[in-house]
């Protein structure tokens, strides 16, 4: 079980949250001109790293707000929590 520190509500149990997957995926600025390859990259391709991973969570059964987390995908340890729009804090 993860203990996740919501930036607004503080530390809460994982079951209050939903995981939204990889963070910082930027929506293509001009979708009309995008090639199929670029759509595929944007929609489907993922980093899926072994180690530090930047991901989105939402406090679904709390304040219902989204935020970003840096979590290690091997130890599952959360090393940083930061708000949407912020860049990840240094390691």
């Amino acid at each position: 079980m993860l203990l996740i520190e919501c930036p607004w509500c503080g530390p809460r149990e994982e079951t209050e949250f939903s995981c939204g997957g990889e963070a910082h995926i930027v929506r293509p600025p001009s979708p009309d001109t995008l090639a199929d390859e670029e759509w595929g990259e944007y929609l489907f391709m993922r980093k899926n790293p072994r180690g530090a991973h930047l991901e989105q969570w939402v406090h679904a059964h709390g304040c219902r707000r989204w935020f970003n987390v840096r979590r290690d995908t091997v130890t599952y340890k959360i090393s940083a929590v930061y708000k949407v729009g912020e860049s990840p804090p240094h390691q």
């Binding site: 993860l2 994982e14 995981c19 991901e55 599952y76």
Partner: peptide, 10 residues
Amino acid sequence: SYTGYGQRGS
């Protein structure tokens, strides 16, 4: 729901 290589879950 989260990704993980740890061979364990919640």
